[in-house]
Design a binder for these strands. Structure first.
Length: 389
DNA sequence: GGTCAGTTGTTGTT
DNA sequence: AACAACAACTGACC
């Protein structure tokens, strides 16, 4: 069957770099000659409206013990940029996958994304600063992992989002795998409200609610958990939550990363699932991050803090945190849930391949039914095996 | 049609 | 700290 009717592969980062090349302005000296700006007060033909209030934007005044530590504005943005690039060695050695997602007192990245998103910081200025720094060091990392590479990822997602109709949806999106996601609002709400019963996941979702920002890898963990890793909830639902709560949410980057993490596009190794128990542990064995964002667990011994439901009742009593009363029981069993997700992803991929990407709503309904039916015989088989054995 | 690489997995072994 | 096994995806390139 011809591939031209659907299932179009997305642009790759490497291809994007080749196509884009190095922008002409990148080689200009740091003192860029600015094109002339209109005088202050001259707004040309722009229609100026009042800046809406926070309430008008739909954000209610909420009671919160802790607020985002990140202040807005250009002054703050330039200060942050200066502080980041002052440490030349840190910038030169920056490799995105190697940051600590549990670091919150001093985040492992620049946290310049909110300032880029609101236009408080010029991405070109940031890029030129990095190029200038690279010139003055012996060695430095390179895209995709370098700090400059991160800015290029931003442009990569802008480019592919611009060129892809229905980029922010599964249906009608040619680069998006058609996957029979659950429509389970209970699981979605548990995830959104930080009560999945997995402290690592809930701490991250709490940081999202309080700070509007969390480390990139932390975002990966919760996005994987919601979609292909454990809950099998539609990535569009998670995307909506991020779009609402992140202070750096950016339409193209947010949608692009949800497509990525849900293995719907760009990335396809659905066997690689972040463990909601062991992933955080390797960075933060004591669970300080969890203790900070989920104070209800602050006295749980470190042996149990990532899996408090396994703590003996005496320990739970001593920690003043009874699982099921003070902190929720896990909404799923990770081992079986992730296995089931793998099975569903394999079936969905097979269907997409068979249909060359042209998977209809009915095809998905049929696959959902098949996946449910396949589950039943498995239980039957187990019973049979037991009887025989 | 085969090979190889791909920004960020996990578990277990040496 | 580095490696293989796990099970095996896609897309670029030949």
């Amino acid at each position: 069957m011809s591939k031209k009717n659907g299932g179009k592969p997305p642009l790759s980062y490497q291809s994007f770099l080749k196509l884009a090349g190095e922008p002409s302005w990148a080689s200009s000296p740091l003192s860029i000659t600015l094109s002339s700006l209109p005088p202050v007060g001259n707004t040309g033909n722009c229609n100026i409206s009042e800046v809406p209030t926070v309430e008008e934007l739909g954000y209610e005044e909420t009671q919160q013990d802790e607020l985002s530590p990140f202040r807005g504005g250009e002054t703050e943005a330039l200060k942050r940029l200066r502080e980041s690039i002052e440490n030349k060695e840190w910038v030169a050695k920056f490799e995105k996958p190697k940051g600590d997602p549990s670091a919150f007192l001093k985040p492992a990245t620049t946290v310049l994304s909110p300032y880029l998103k609101f236009g408080c910081l010029s991405s070109r200025y940031f890029y030129i600063c990095l190029k200038d720094l690279y010139k003055n060091v012996k060695t430095h990392t390179v895209p995709p992992v370098s700090l400059a590479g991160q800015l290029l990822w931003r442009d990569f997602f802008y480019t592919v989002a611009f060129g892809t109709p229905s980029f922010d949806r599964m249906r009608g999106n040619k680069i998006c795998k058609q996957i029979p996601w659950n429509d389970d609002d209970e699981l979605l709400v548990a995830w959104r409200e930080a009560r999945t019963g997995f402290p690592w996941i809930d701490a991250i979702m709490t940081q999202l609610r309080m700070w509007g920002w969390m480390h990139h890898l932390a975002r990966h963990c919760v996005a994987c958990f919601l979609t292909r890793g454990d809950l099998f909830v539609h990535w569009e639902k998670g995307r909506d939550v991020f779009e609402r709560l992140l202070i750096d949410s950016d339409w193209a980057i947010n949608n692009g990363n949800w497509l990525w993490l849900s293995c719907s596009s760009f990335f396809y190794q659905y066997n690689r699932i972040y463990s909601p128990i062991s992933f955080g542990k390797k960075y933060d064995p004591n669970g300080d991050y969890i203790r900070h964002f989920l104070p209800v667990l602050k006295d749980m011994p470190k042996e149990y803090i990532y899996e408090p439901w396994t703590a003996p009742l005496s320990i739970q009593n001593k920690a003043k945190c009874i699982i099921g009363r003070d902190y929720p029981k896990p909404v799923v069993a990770h081992d079986s849930a992730s296995k089931d997700c793998r099975r569903r992803m394999a079936e969905a991929y097979a269907l997409n391949q068979k249909m060359s990407g042209m998977v209809s709503a009915e095809d998905l309904r049929n696959l959902r039914r098949k996946l449910e039916e396949d589950k039943k015989p498995e239980v039957e088989n187990k019973r049979q095996r037991k009887l025989i054995g």
